[in-house]
Design a protein around this nucleic acid. Structure first.
Lengths: 345, 345
DNA sequence: CCCGAGCCTGACAACGTTGTCCAGGCTCTA
DNA sequence: TAGAGCCTGGACAACGTTGTCAGGCTCGGG
């Protein structure tokens, strides 16, 4: 309930206002405003007096009032899934960098992959009158944003497309990346290849799965159900899924991991195996090159994703009329060893 | 210049206000306010009409106006060093979690280790009238915050202490952790131990260095200057520093890495070495257990750091009068192999 | 039938800032 | 010296919301 006020009753020590500054400096209210905003039309001497009063009182302009008056807040909202996920760190950082370049602050929150929480957050940001929104969607219906779009709130979706609404979207080429990664395994002789991924209702997962299927079909390899494990969240379940497909009736010789969290756990499982199993993961992970073997991944550039989205956002804000667009950024296959292991049988 | 308004001239599509809703529902302004805020004293039928009007117009309360009126913003600011650093992800996340539990939003920004930028950011947050601040300081003089503290802005410093001002501080036991880590190396027979760290003006670096010195002194080992490399930022410089101390006249047999970024690079350097060199790093890193050898680290709990700080913040906001306090959280030595390698000579 | 109590509802001021507009004093020129 | 024009400074309204307070309505009891 982000709208609930803080429950505190602590007295908000009263802060000096422009009126106070004006009184102390012996000038009019508007003159203080002019000084604070660097507007012309104030003598050096008067400005001096005002500055002194400001310093003495510790005055800080109240931006709430300013926003109310001006309509613009110079802040943008970022809604992502989980800040603790290393994938979102650089993304968030690059969005912030662009925002800063445009003189805007960043307000952010995590949806924890919960559509309801996403909506709650987005609306709270809108109530704060952010000028724009960068959203990594958790849900698949964003019609609740229609009034906001109409009101001129710039909006860009990242990493996953918006649902049932026409808006800018910046994505990685999940389908192509996965297809390429799986094709890479096939090229190294694998036929029994496993796929472990998150919930298929998440767009990225669905696309990567589609890429997996496409690559298999390209090679004319029928896919056994036991090779695909979906809706797998949390290390324990990933572990079980990996172990299952390694010991089933048709044990896989290679695994394609659908995201960085899956990759990490699969690495752990494979490290315990007697035979050598190939692995390609989606998303790069730190230190992947130092492991034995190095981890081959389909890397997406999180920072670029964020930067592209944020720049797109500010282009909307700059007044250039833009029609919603879908931008897809390429992925890159980084071979480090684990993806080049030949089939064990 | 976070205060500069967005340069855009895009017309902010005019949004409906309570007045519009009132007109459409055929009720008074205040009645709409009551409905929006769930206040009692409105007939079900009237509320119904108002709700319909709200839905039809896509009305969202303007929190700027609300804040102006109420004095509280239900948002807190978080200033950290770099969101892309994996150490800050969990910290930021846990702060957000606590904020959410208290119904507050999180506004954040990165200082990039630049004191001036830190101040600029903090003041921009204060202008937004955040109720509280969680700051990971870049600078060492925070007297500029005095008017804010006096005005009742709750403030907690994390990871590093505040400079020249009396405020709450939540830290890891950097000194004790480093001392323990180095003592661990000494216990495994090392005497020539190197220390590579960031700029010593950063409190954490200074404390860890102090811990290193203390452990060496405890063991009666005189420290050669060539074993200590400070002010080392960026992978290339860390690499050079490591190589230097491995090949100098008194080559080290073990390295203590002052932070996670240093650790990662040192791992790379050591992987290229013929002889085996021991390593203990400050801060845990992902996958540290899967490397050969596993990386022994002094781990601090970033999430706990953030949570503790945020809870402390809201305790201030809840009106309980609290005197500034310095909270120090323990670190934990995690042995995984690299720190237990015996000296090579 | 009248009055009072209690419940809904709405008018109005205030929050702190900025935009508009005007007044007064100054300088410069004719 | 007077008038025009410029520069500085200030009074006032408005932004959208909430708190205060008073008015009108209904209903029950005397």
């Amino acid at each position: 309930m982000p709208q609930t006020p803080l429950r505190s009753a602590a007295r908000y020590g009263t802060r000096p206002t422009m009126k106070d500054v004006a009184a102390r400096a012996g000038v009019g209210l508007k003159t203080v405003s002019r000084v604070v905003n660097g507007e012309p039309g104030v003598t050096a001497e008067t400005e001096q007096r005002v500055q002194e009063a400001i310093g003495a009182l510790g005055f800080r302009r109240n931006d709430s009032a300013r926003v109310l008056r001006k309509g613009r807040t110079a802040s943008i909202g970022l809604v992502l899934e989980d800040l603790a996920d290393p994938f979102y760190g650089p993304l968030s950082r690059s969005v912030e960098e662009v925002a800063r370049a445009h003189g805007a602050l960043l307000i952010n929150g995590s949806s924890a992959e919960d559509p309801e929480r996403e909506q709650e957050l987005v609306l709270a940001l809108c109530a704060r009158r952010v000028d724009g929104l960068v959203v990594i969607p958790a849900g698949d219906d964003h019609r609740y944003l229609e009034p906001e779009l109409k009101a001129g709130v710039a909006t860009v979706f990242v990493d996953r497309p918006a649902g049932r609404i026409d808006a800018d979207v910046v994505l990685s080429d999940n389908f192509g990346g996965a297809r390429g990664g799986v094709a890479h395994l096939i090229a190294h002789g694998h036929r029994r290849i496993g796929f472990i991924g998150d919930m298929p209702r998440i767009h990225t997962t669905a696309e990567r799965l589609r890429g997996y299927r496409a690559a298999m079909e390209d090679a004319g390899i029928p896919v056994a159900d036991s090779w695909m494990s979906l809706g797998v969240t949390g290390p324990e379940r990933v572990r079980r899924a990996a172990e299952d497909m390694l010991t089933g009736p048709e044990p896989v010789t290679a695994i394609f991991a659908g995201n960085n969290r899956v990759t990490v756990t699969v690495i752990r499982v494979l490290a315990e195996q007697a035979r050598r199993v190939a692995l390609v993961g989606f998303d790069d992970i730190e230190l992947a090159d130092l492991l034995q073997p190095g981890v081959t991944v389909v890397a997406q550039d999180a920072a670029d994703l964020g930067r592209t989205a944020a720049e797109r956002l500010f282009r909307q804000l700059d007044g250039t009329p833009v029609t919603p667009e879908r931008i897809e950024l390429p992925t890159r296959l980084i071979t480090r060893g684990s993806g080049e292991i030949p089939p064990a049988d």
